[in-house]
């Protein structure tokens, strides 16, 4: 049983390390888009490690096996909902006109939006940015 709690502890440690990395990335990255990139990392491997690790640790310590099943469920719901908020945030950032970092190499979305606006109605200008 003890091997389980040790695995759990290691997983929690790894998760915390990835939390640390994403915080570091939040400081080091140049613009909002790249900061989002590093913060999604904390939500995936970081939270996954901590949540599942807690479940394993609890089972190893002699709590009921329900712990691992329930932590897996929590992790699953987190994985299902987290990307939606990340996507919404980055899309809102783009739509409100936050510029990309000067070192960005390509922006196909901008081209796409412009082409679309042109194709739709050339007379109605001023509405979109």
């Amino acid at each position: 049983m003890n091997a389980l709690s040790i695995t759990g502890e290691v997983l929690v440690f790894i998760g915390t390390f990835f939390y640390f990395l994403s915080t570091l990335g939040l400081i080091r990255m140049p613009d909002v888009y790249n900061r989002m990139q590093t913060s999604t990392k904390s939500a995936t491997l970081g939270s996954l490690g901590v949540i599942i690790g807690t479940g394993l640790w609890a089972v190893g310590k002699g709590y009921s096996p329900a712990w691992i099943v329930q932590t897996v469920i929590v992790a699953t719901f987190l994985l299902l909902t987290n990307p939606i908020s990340a996507h919404t945030l980055i899309r809102a950032a783009y739509k409100t006109g936050i510029p990309m970092w000067a070192g960005s190499v390509v922006d196909k979305y901008d081209e796409h939006l412009k082409a679309k606006a042109q194709a739709e109605e050339p007379e109605e200008e001023g509405d979109e940015e």
Binding site: Q37, T38, T40, L45, N82, P83, A86, H87, I90, Y94
Partner: peptide, 12 residues
């Protein structure tokens, strides 16, 4: 969702 969950790529 899978793309966004993979670090390094976010669906815009």
């Amino acid at each position: 969702n899978s793309i966004t969950l993979t670090p390094g790529t976010i669906t815009l």
